[in-house]
Design a protein around this nucleic acid. Structure first.
Length: 212
DNA sequence: ATCCCGAGGG
DNA sequence: CCCTCTGGAT
């Protein structure tokens, strides 16, 4: 199947219809809370991130409070999210910079976000689109896989796929489309055994029935 | 065993 | 490009 502009539009229409009302798994809107939650979310379920951050923010709700907590205590607080040494070090350094250079507020500037340790394109895009309500498509493993299988955006790197999705999807739908693709990747278009039989996109998917 | 809404470093 | 970091869920 050759995926034309027309077919891509149909794919987007079905995604929108199927995942209407799909919400971010991480429940935060506040920029700081969201930033920390997304840093914690690597290789960890969103449920656990929500539990862990709730506990953490009850004790240390601000960058200054997390700095005051100290690294060993922070490691202990986030231990059950995995990768805790890296994450604690990154969160601590991020909070220090937030206090020293940004008056304790998360900056809206995309390049400024990217400079924080532990913040890559994916995290910066999530914060940009969810917390600051600006158009961005975060490409994680799900979005990457689904976009490639659909040929909605084909690319070998997350950045290439991000650019492709930006071209294929109207700007005002970028934030929502990110969630459609994530939920579709988690529930239907799974990495190992995709549920093509039950997939509403199968008629417009070039990989239907023979995804790896 | 294998997979998680990654990022940094080599 | 590859590797490492981590615990929990399935």
């Amino acid at each position: 199947m050759r995926v034309t502009k027309k077919i891509k539009e149909e794919q987007i229409r079905i995604l929108e219809q199927t995942y209407l009302g799909a919400k971010p798994a991480l429940k935060f809107r506040n920029p700081f809370d969201l930033l920390i939650a997304v840093i914690l979310s690597a290789q960890c379920t969103d449920k656990r991130v929500n539990v862990t951050t709730a506990r953490l923010f009850a004790k240390a709700p601000t960058p200054a409070a997390i700095v005051a907590l100290g690294l060993p205590q922070l490691e202990e607080e986030i231990r059950d999210c995995g990768l805790f040494r890296n994450k604690a070090k990154n969160i601590m350094a991020t909070c220090v910079t937030l206090c020293e250079q940004y008056g304790g507020e998360v900056p809206e500037d995309y390049d400024a976000l990217l400079k924080f340790p532990g913040v890559g394109r994916k995290t910066a895009n999530v914060v940009t689109s969810i917390a600051f309500h600006r158009p961005a498509i975060a490409v994680d493993t799900h979005v990457f896989r689904v976009a490639n299988r659909l040929h909605l955006a084909v690319g070998e790197t997350p950045l290439a796929v991000e650019r492709g999705l930006q071209r294929a999807i109207p700007k005002e739908k970028w934030s929502d489309a990110h969630h459609w693709l994530i939920w579709h990747g988690r529930r239907v278009c799974k990495a190992r055994r995709p549920l093509c039989e039950a997939c509403p996109l199968a008629p417009v998917c070039p990989s239907a029935g023979h995804a790896e």
